[in-house]
Computed example of a mutant assay.
Amino acid sequence: MNPQNESLLDYKTQDYGHDPTEVRHTDTYTDEYVRGFVEKWDELIDWDQRWAAEGDFFIEQLQSRGVRRVLDVATGTGFHSVRLIEAGFDVVSADGSPYMLSKAFENARRRGHVLRTVQADWRWLNRDVYGRFDAVICLGNSFTHLFSERDRRKALAEFYAALVHDGVLILDQRNYDAILDHGFSSKHKYYYCGEKVSAEPEHVDEGLARFQYSFADGSVYHLNMFPLRKRYTRNLMHEVGFQSIDTYGDFLETYHEEDPDFFVHVASKQYDEAEIVEEPSAELPKEAQQ
């Protein structure tokens, strides 16, 4: 085995330095998903429970738009890629973490599928992923790994460019508005449904949501993420070029703002001559606008 490839399989510990709450950089995410964390990820995301909780929401959204080719840009351990393949979609699976892609490939193989995987940084997505897609999906709160507005705009522009002229982007995020304004409270009904596993914020401010993931064997891991507000995310998608955006709260079209654990944005690229009225911009700390 090539020594470089062998080093990718090593067990390493997460290292945030002497002050983890000051680690607010997009490039950190590849080092956060160490092998030990990835191997436990499916304990956190129980596939059967998540399948039951989501129902056919994403499948119906894609089918209603005549989607055939899907690019899953945050494949993780493969849950949505496998689900969409089994629903008849043509799927390409991308992720920035080699550990995640390896686990996703293994999970899919156990279910009788061969994933087409690509390791790619969203900011240069079209350098590594070829062709155009009817839909791009970015799920699992993954977009909040981007800490600067410049990186978010670049990633959204890459998603936009990867789509055909009438394509759709489906992107989700935690309800950080509720966490920032009212404190953390979660039903853990849809995404983090593993038993005897907890996912809770250790530190939250306007520029950082540091979550702690605790497992039944006593192991603990962390992720540093940017707490995106819903209005800001929607406006940014509009500004990049998406024409219309529908936002669902835990897969429901009607909801109270503080209730959902997650928001799901369904953004259409299709050009509409009708004027789009943007919501007032949400304030962001200066470091997030760089």
Rank of each mutant, 00 (worst) to 15 (best):
E6M: 13
S7I: 15
D10M: 11
T13Q: 06
Q14M: 04
H18G: 08
V23M: 03
V23F: 01
R24S: 08
T26E: 01
D27C: 10
D27G: 13
T28D: 04
E43F: 11
W47N: 11
A53S: 13
E54S: 13
G55P: 07
Q63N: 08
G66T: 05
V67W: 06
V67F: 06
V67C: 13
R68I: 03
G78N: 04
A87Q: 07
F89C: 07
S93N: 07
Y99V: 14
Y99G: 11
M100Q: 08
N107V: 12
R110E: 13
V114T: 15
Q119H: 02
Q119N: 05
A120C: 06
D121S: 07
W122S: 04
L125Q: 04
N126S: 04
Y130L: 15
Y130G: 14
D134G: 08
N141S: 11
F143Y: 11
H145P: 08
S148D: 05
R150M: 09
R153M: 02
L156V: 10
F159H: 10
F159T: 02
F159K: 06
G167V: 02
L171S: 06
L171W: 02
D172S: 06
A178F: 07
G183H: 05
C193E: 04
V197T: 10
E200S: 13
D205V: 01
E206S: 12
S214E: 09
F215K: 09
D217L: 04
G218E: 05
V220P: 02
P227C: 01
R229P: 12
K230S: 06
Y232T: 05
R234F: 01
M237Y: 06
M237E: 08
H238S: 09
V240G: 06
Q243R: 14
G249I: 15
G249C: 05
G249D: 03
L252F: 14
E253R: 15
T254V: 14
T254L: 01
Y255V: 14
E258T: 15
E258N: 13
V264M: 03
H265W: 02
H265F: 13
D272M: 01
I276E: 09
P280T: 07
P280V: 09
A282S: 15
Q290I: 14
